[in-house]
Structures are given as structure tokens and as C-alpha cells.
Amino acid sequence: MNFYVELFVSILLVTGAGFVLIGSVGLIRLPDFYTRLHAPTKATTLGMGCLLIASMVLISFTKGAPSVHELLITLFLFITAPVTAHMLAKTALHYELGFTEKTKGKELAEKARERVSPADDA
């Protein structure tokens, strides 16, 4: 197999796995649920994207025919990841999970839970 293909795939694999790892490190390190939400749902999308592209390139080259079905998983993840993140954030707001001390605009959480505009005095 071509050396450059192998190099490209290796770099993609290590970057992808790195993003997955950073997402999980964020899950452990960050202080409250809302900040933790940012780490995995994002870092993982790009990480998985890198891994899937690597798999696509490698299998296309070893089989000699283009392999595109990994694109489906990538697309699926990119469509579902924001939905999951939104639903989890909504759940946390309605579950009244606390924010870390220094969060700005904590008082907006009450308004968001009631689903009214921030100017209303509910």
C-alpha cells in the first residue's frame, strides 16, 4: 500500500482517538452538568468523523473499490448529536440541576424552565 495513504490514515486515527479521549477527560474534569455537556457531544463528533474517514480511505484502498457507507454513520451522528445535546440540556434544566458558582445568567434558568421570555416577571 502507498506510504502516504498509510501516513494519512495513521494521522487521522490518532487525531480522532485524541478527540474521543479529550471528550472523556472533559467529562471528568469540568465542574457542572451543563459544562460537561459540551465536552463529549462535540469532541466525540469530530473524533468519530476522523475515525470514519480513516476507515473509509483505508478500506477503499485495500479493496480497490470506493467504500462510502461509513458516510452514513457520520451523517447520522452529525444529525443526532445536537438533538441528544438539546434533550439532555432540557432534561437538566427541568431537573433543576445546579450551575457552578461563577456561571453568568444563572437567574435565566428559572425563565428557561418556565419557557417564558427573559423580560417576563413570572
Binding site: 472523556s24 452538568f33 460537561r36 463529549p40 466525540t44 431537573y95
Partner: peptide
């Protein structure tokens, strides 16, 4: 809390997909 655990499970299934790939 429970939402934390759901978020973790969500991350875990994506990571196990990475493993399978």
C-alpha cells in the same frame, strides 16, 4: 445525578462505536 449518567452512557456508546470501527 441521573442526567449525568445518561450523558455518560451516551458518550460510552459513541466511544464503543469508535472501538468497533
Amino acid at each position: 445525578d441521573v442526567p449525568d449518567r445518561i450523558l455518560t452512557l451516551d458518550t460510552m456508546y459513541i466511544n464503543s462505536m469508535a472501538m468497533i470501527i
